[in-house]
Protein backbone atom coordinates (compact mmCIF):
# COMPACT_ATOMS: atom_id res chain seq x y z
CA UNK A 1 0.00 0.00 0.00
CA UNK A 2 2.71 2.42 0.97
CA UNK A 3 4.59 1.77 -2.28
CA UNK A 4 1.48 2.72 -4.26
CA UNK A 5 1.11 5.84 -2.14
CA UNK A 6 4.75 6.71 -2.74
CA UNK A 7 4.33 6.23 -6.48
CA UNK A 8 1.24 8.42 -6.49
CA UNK A 9 3.11 11.06 -4.57
CA UNK A 10 6.14 10.93 -6.85
CA UNK A 11 4.34 10.66 -10.18
CA UNK A 12 1.10 12.53 -9.62
CA UNK A 13 0.86 14.77 -6.59
CA UNK A 14 2.91 16.69 -5.61
CA UNK A 15 5.39 14.98 -7.93
CA UNK A 16 5.77 14.97 -11.68
CA UNK A 17 2.27 15.63 -12.98
CA UNK A 18 1.30 18.36 -10.54
CA UNK A 19 4.72 19.96 -10.79
CA UNK A 20 4.58 20.10 -14.59
CA UNK A 21 1.06 21.55 -14.61
CA UNK A 22 1.87 24.04 -11.89
CA UNK A 23 5.13 25.15 -13.52
CA UNK A 24 3.49 25.55 -16.93
CA UNK A 25 0.83 27.69 -15.26
CA UNK A 26 3.53 29.84 -13.70
CA UNK A 27 5.31 30.12 -17.05
CA UNK A 28 2.09 31.33 -18.63
CA UNK A 29 1.57 33.79 -15.81
CA UNK A 30 5.11 35.08 -16.13
CA UNK A 31 4.86 35.47 -19.89
CA UNK A 32 1.43 37.04 -19.74
CA UNK A 33 2.40 39.58 -17.09
CA UNK A 34 5.64 40.36 -18.93
CA UNK A 35 3.70 40.89 -22.14
CA UNK A 36 1.11 43.14 -20.49
CA UNK A 37 3.89 45.23 -18.98
CA UNK A 38 5.29 45.63 -22.50
CA UNK A 39 1.94 46.66 -23.93
CA UNK A 40 1.52 43.36 -25.74
CA UNK A 41 -1.36 40.88 -25.69
CA UNK A 42 0.68 37.93 -24.47
CA UNK A 43 0.21 34.19 -24.96
CA UNK A 44 -3.07 32.33 -24.48
CA UNK A 45 -3.43 30.17 -21.37
CA UNK A 46 -2.44 26.87 -22.97
CA UNK A 47 0.51 28.25 -24.95
CA UNK A 48 3.25 26.84 -22.64
CA UNK A 49 1.71 23.38 -23.01
CA UNK A 50 1.55 23.64 -26.80
CA UNK A 51 5.17 24.87 -26.85
CA UNK A 52 6.20 21.83 -24.85
CA UNK A 53 4.22 19.43 -27.04
CA UNK A 54 5.61 21.04 -30.19
CA UNK A 55 9.21 20.72 -29.03
CA UNK A 56 8.76 17.12 -27.92
CA UNK A 57 7.31 16.16 -31.30
CA UNK A 58 10.21 17.68 -33.21
CA UNK A 59 13.15 15.89 -34.77
CA UNK A 60 15.81 14.81 -32.26
CA UNK A 61 19.26 15.89 -33.41
CA UNK A 62 22.57 15.16 -31.68
CA UNK A 63 25.59 17.05 -33.05
CA UNK A 64 28.34 14.74 -34.30
CA UNK A 65 31.03 16.21 -32.07
CA UNK A 66 28.91 16.29 -28.93
CA UNK A 67 29.31 13.71 -26.19
CA UNK A 68 26.44 11.28 -26.92
CA UNK A 69 26.11 9.93 -23.39
CA UNK A 70 26.08 13.30 -21.68
CA UNK A 71 23.76 14.66 -24.33
CA UNK A 72 21.18 12.05 -23.36
CA UNK A 73 21.64 11.98 -19.60
CA UNK A 74 21.78 15.70 -18.85
CA UNK A 75 18.27 16.78 -19.94
CA UNK A 76 16.72 13.96 -17.91
CA UNK A 77 18.86 14.74 -14.88
CA UNK A 78 17.92 18.42 -14.87
CA UNK A 79 14.18 17.67 -14.86
CA UNK A 80 14.33 14.87 -12.31
CA UNK A 81 16.37 16.87 -9.83
CA UNK A 82 14.00 19.82 -10.14
CA UNK A 83 10.93 17.59 -9.65
CA UNK A 84 12.63 15.91 -6.69
CA UNK A 85 13.08 19.32 -5.10
CA UNK A 86 9.39 20.05 -5.58
CA UNK A 87 8.39 16.94 -3.63
CA UNK A 88 9.98 18.40 -0.49
CA UNK A 89 8.10 21.71 -0.74
CA UNK A 90 4.86 22.02 1.26
CA UNK A 91 1.95 22.90 -1.02
CA UNK A 92 -1.30 23.25 0.87
CA UNK A 93 -0.12 21.89 4.17
CA UNK A 94 2.37 23.06 6.75
CA UNK A 95 4.56 20.21 5.76
CA UNK A 96 5.52 18.42 2.59
CA UNK A 97 4.67 14.79 1.94
CA UNK A 98 8.14 13.71 3.13
CA UNK A 99 9.07 16.15 5.90
CA UNK A 100 12.30 15.68 7.84
CA UNK A 101 14.64 17.85 9.88
CA UNK A 102 16.83 19.12 7.00
CA UNK A 103 14.47 19.39 4.02
CA UNK A 104 15.25 23.08 3.40
CA UNK A 105 18.90 22.27 2.77
CA UNK A 106 18.01 19.34 0.54
CA UNK A 107 15.84 21.56 -1.66
CA UNK A 108 18.59 24.13 -2.04
CA UNK A 109 21.04 21.35 -2.85
CA UNK A 110 18.70 19.73 -5.40
CA UNK A 111 18.25 23.11 -7.05
CA UNK A 112 21.99 23.43 -7.69
CA UNK A 113 21.97 20.26 -9.80
CA UNK A 114 20.19 21.84 -12.79
CA UNK A 115 22.78 24.63 -12.80
CA UNK A 116 25.63 22.12 -12.82
CA UNK A 117 23.83 20.23 -15.57
CA UNK A 118 23.58 23.43 -17.59
CA UNK A 119 27.31 23.96 -17.23
CA UNK A 120 28.04 20.42 -18.42
CA UNK A 121 25.46 20.69 -21.20
CA UNK A 122 27.28 23.63 -22.73
CA UNK A 123 30.67 22.09 -22.14
CA UNK A 124 29.84 18.82 -23.91
CA UNK A 125 27.89 20.26 -26.82
CA UNK A 126 30.99 21.21 -28.84
CA UNK A 127 29.81 24.70 -29.66
CA UNK A 128 31.73 27.92 -28.96
CA UNK A 129 28.57 29.67 -27.79
CA UNK A 130 27.86 26.74 -25.51
CA UNK A 131 31.32 26.97 -23.98
CA UNK A 132 31.05 30.71 -23.38
CA UNK A 133 27.61 30.11 -21.89
CA UNK A 134 28.99 27.36 -19.63
CA UNK A 135 31.67 29.63 -18.21
CA UNK A 136 29.14 32.34 -17.61
CA UNK A 137 26.78 29.87 -15.94
CA UNK A 138 29.56 28.75 -13.59
CA UNK A 139 30.63 32.33 -12.78
CA UNK A 140 27.05 33.34 -12.15
CA UNK A 141 26.50 30.27 -9.95
CA UNK A 142 29.43 31.33 -7.76
CA UNK A 143 27.88 34.79 -7.57
CA UNK A 144 24.28 34.14 -6.57
CA UNK A 145 24.74 31.01 -4.51
CA UNK A 146 26.22 32.77 -1.49
CA UNK A 147 23.52 35.46 -1.17
CA UNK A 148 20.86 32.81 -1.81
CA UNK A 149 22.17 30.57 0.96
CA UNK A 150 22.52 33.51 3.35
CA UNK A 151 18.99 34.62 2.60
CA UNK A 152 17.55 31.14 3.05
CA UNK A 153 19.53 30.75 6.26
CA UNK A 154 17.84 33.82 7.78
CA UNK A 155 14.40 32.30 8.53
CA UNK A 156 16.09 29.08 9.57
CA UNK A 157 18.17 30.92 12.15
CA UNK A 158 15.16 32.86 13.35
CA UNK A 159 13.09 29.69 13.76
CA UNK A 160 16.08 27.76 15.04
CA UNK A 161 15.51 24.88 12.66
CA UNK A 162 16.39 23.58 9.16
CA UNK A 163 12.95 22.06 8.83
CA UNK A 164 10.46 23.89 6.65
CA UNK A 165 7.63 22.71 8.91
CA UNK A 166 9.25 24.32 11.95
CA UNK A 167 9.95 27.54 10.06
CA UNK A 168 6.35 27.79 8.84
CA UNK A 169 4.98 26.99 12.31
CA UNK A 170 7.26 29.57 13.88
CA UNK A 171 6.12 32.28 11.49
CA UNK A 172 2.46 31.40 11.95
CA UNK A 173 2.92 31.74 15.69
CA UNK A 174 4.99 34.94 15.40
CA UNK A 175 3.62 36.92 12.39
CA UNK A 176 6.14 39.77 12.98
CA UNK A 177 8.85 37.38 11.76
CA UNK A 178 7.61 37.85 8.17
CA UNK A 179 8.21 41.60 8.38
CA UNK A 180 11.58 41.13 10.09
CA UNK A 181 13.06 39.25 7.13
CA UNK A 182 11.75 41.18 4.13
CA UNK A 183 15.28 42.19 3.14
CA UNK A 184 16.24 38.52 3.00
CA UNK A 185 13.20 37.86 0.81
CA UNK A 186 14.35 40.59 -1.59
CA UNK A 187 17.84 39.10 -1.72
CA UNK A 188 16.40 35.64 -2.29
CA UNK A 189 14.18 36.87 -5.13
CA UNK A 190 17.11 38.56 -6.88
CA UNK A 191 19.24 35.46 -6.40
CA UNK A 192 16.40 33.35 -7.80
CA UNK A 193 16.29 35.67 -10.80
CA UNK A 194 19.97 34.92 -11.31
CA UNK A 195 19.50 31.19 -10.82
CA UNK A 196 16.76 31.14 -13.45
CA UNK A 197 18.97 33.25 -15.74
CA UNK A 198 16.39 35.93 -16.33
CA UNK A 199 16.93 39.59 -17.24
CA UNK A 200 18.93 41.43 -15.91
CA UNK A 201 20.98 38.35 -14.96
CA UNK A 202 20.58 36.40 -18.19
CA UNK A 203 24.17 36.75 -19.44
CA UNK A 204 24.66 32.92 -19.51
CA UNK A 205 22.00 32.54 -22.17
CA UNK A 206 21.99 36.05 -23.64
CA UNK A 207 20.20 35.54 -26.93
CA UNK A 208 21.74 38.40 -28.88
CA UNK A 209 25.26 37.58 -27.72
CA UNK A 210 25.69 33.83 -27.49
CA UNK A 211 22.46 32.58 -29.09
CA UNK A 212 21.20 30.43 -26.21
CA UNK A 213 24.38 29.78 -24.24
CA UNK A 214 24.76 26.22 -22.96
CA UNK A 215 21.63 24.95 -24.70
CA UNK A 216 22.44 26.40 -28.13
CA UNK A 217 22.88 22.98 -29.71
CA UNK A 218 19.86 21.35 -28.07
CA UNK A 219 16.73 20.84 -30.12
CA UNK A 220 13.44 18.98 -29.97
CA UNK A 221 12.62 16.84 -26.92
CA UNK A 222 15.96 17.55 -25.21
CA UNK A 223 15.39 21.28 -25.46
CA UNK A 224 11.86 20.72 -24.20
CA UNK A 225 13.26 19.07 -21.07
CA UNK A 226 15.63 21.95 -20.43
CA UNK A 227 12.85 24.48 -20.78
CA UNK A 228 10.57 22.41 -18.58
CA UNK A 229 13.34 22.22 -16.00
CA UNK A 230 13.63 26.01 -15.94
CA UNK A 231 9.88 26.30 -15.40
CA UNK A 232 9.98 23.76 -12.58
CA UNK A 233 12.87 25.58 -10.94
CA UNK A 234 10.76 28.72 -11.06
CA UNK A 235 7.88 26.82 -9.45
CA UNK A 236 10.10 25.33 -6.75
CA UNK A 237 11.70 28.70 -6.13
CA UNK A 238 8.51 30.68 -5.58
CA UNK A 239 6.84 27.82 -3.69
CA UNK A 240 9.83 27.57 -1.36
CA UNK A 241 10.02 31.33 -0.79
CA UNK A 242 6.26 31.54 -0.11
CA UNK A 243 6.79 28.95 2.64
CA UNK A 244 9.93 30.09 4.37
CA UNK A 245 9.42 33.85 4.03
CA UNK A 246 5.65 34.30 3.83
CA UNK A 247 4.49 31.92 6.56
CA UNK A 248 3.26 29.15 4.25
CA UNK A 249 -0.35 28.05 4.07
CA UNK A 250 -3.01 27.90 6.79
CA UNK A 251 -6.66 26.91 7.18
CA UNK A 252 -8.73 24.21 5.46
CA UNK A 253 -7.06 22.67 2.40
CA UNK A 254 -8.97 24.68 -0.25
CA UNK A 255 -8.26 27.96 1.51
CA UNK A 256 -4.65 26.96 2.07
CA UNK A 257 -4.25 26.08 -1.59
CA UNK A 258 -5.69 29.46 -2.62
CA UNK A 259 -3.41 31.23 -0.18
CA UNK A 260 -0.43 29.31 -1.51
CA UNK A 261 -1.33 30.14 -5.12
CA UNK A 262 -1.87 33.80 -4.30
CA UNK A 263 1.57 34.06 -2.71
CA UNK A 264 3.17 32.36 -5.71
CA UNK A 265 1.37 34.71 -8.11
CA UNK A 266 2.59 37.75 -6.22
CA UNK A 267 6.18 36.49 -6.25
CA UNK A 268 6.04 35.69 -9.98
CA UNK A 269 4.60 39.14 -10.64
CA UNK A 270 7.54 40.72 -8.83
CA UNK A 271 10.18 38.82 -10.79
CA UNK A 272 8.29 39.41 -14.05
CA UNK A 273 8.38 43.13 -13.31
CA UNK A 274 12.12 42.98 -12.65
CA UNK A 275 12.53 41.28 -16.00
CA UNK A 276 10.47 43.91 -17.80
CA UNK A 277 12.15 46.92 -16.23
CA UNK A 278 15.81 46.24 -16.85
CA UNK A 279 18.50 45.69 -19.43
CA UNK A 280 20.87 42.74 -19.32
CA UNK A 281 24.06 43.22 -17.31
CA UNK A 282 27.48 42.01 -18.37
CA UNK A 283 28.72 38.95 -16.48
CA UNK A 284 31.27 40.83 -14.39
CA UNK A 285 28.65 43.45 -13.54
CA UNK A 286 26.41 40.61 -12.34
CA UNK A 287 29.19 39.22 -10.15
CA UNK A 288 29.96 42.57 -8.61
CA UNK A 289 26.26 43.29 -8.08
CA UNK A 290 25.80 40.09 -6.08
CA UNK A 291 29.00 40.44 -4.06
CA UNK A 292 28.93 44.20 -3.53
CA UNK A 293 25.27 44.67 -2.72
CA UNK A 294 23.41 41.46 -2.02
CA UNK A 295 25.96 39.71 0.18
CA UNK A 296 26.33 42.70 2.56
CA UNK A 297 22.55 43.12 2.69
CA UNK A 298 22.08 39.45 3.49
CA UNK A 299 24.79 39.65 6.18
CA UNK A 300 23.23 42.71 7.75
CA UNK A 301 19.85 40.98 7.74
CA UNK A 302 21.41 38.03 9.47
CA UNK A 303 22.92 40.24 12.17
CA UNK A 304 19.55 41.92 12.73
CA UNK A 305 17.85 38.54 13.00
CA UNK A 306 20.40 37.33 15.52
CA UNK A 307 19.94 40.53 17.58
CA UNK A 308 16.14 40.18 17.45
CA UNK A 309 16.42 36.56 18.49
CA UNK A 310 18.64 37.54 21.40
CA UNK A 311 16.34 40.44 22.40
CA UNK A 312 13.00 38.66 22.13
CA UNK A 313 14.42 35.47 23.42
CA UNK A 314 12.43 33.11 21.24
Amino acid sequence: MSIILDLVRILIFPGLLFTVVFSLFLEWLDRKLYARMQNRVGPPFRQPLWDLVKLISKEDIIPENANQFMYTVLPVLTVTSAVAAMIYVPIWNRESVYPFWGDLLVIVFLLTIPTMVLFLAGWFSANPFGVVGSFRTAIQFLSYEVPLLLAVLTPAVLAGSWSIRDIVLFQQEHPWAVAAQLAALAVALLALQGKLERVPFDAPEAETEIVAGPITEYTGPRLALFRLSTDIQLAVGVALLSNIFLAGAIGPWYLALLLFLAKCVVLVAIIAAIRAMMARLRIHQITSFYWKYLVPIAMAQMVIIVLIKGGVGV
Partner: peptide, 13 residues
Protein backbone atom coordinates in the same frame (compact mmCIF):
# COMPACT_ATOMS: atom_id res chain seq x y z
CA UNK B 1 19.45 48.63 -29.41
CA UNK B 2 17.12 47.84 -26.51
CA UNK B 3 16.77 44.27 -27.71
CA UNK B 4 20.54 43.88 -28.10
CA UNK B 5 21.13 44.83 -24.47
CA UNK B 6 18.31 42.57 -23.34
CA UNK B 7 15.86 45.39 -22.62
CA UNK B 8 12.90 44.06 -24.56
CA UNK B 9 10.40 46.41 -22.97
CA UNK B 10 12.14 49.37 -24.60
CA UNK B 11 12.03 47.45 -27.88
CA UNK B 12 8.27 46.89 -27.65
CA UNK B 13 7.51 50.47 -26.63
Amino acid sequence: AGHEIGFDTLFMY
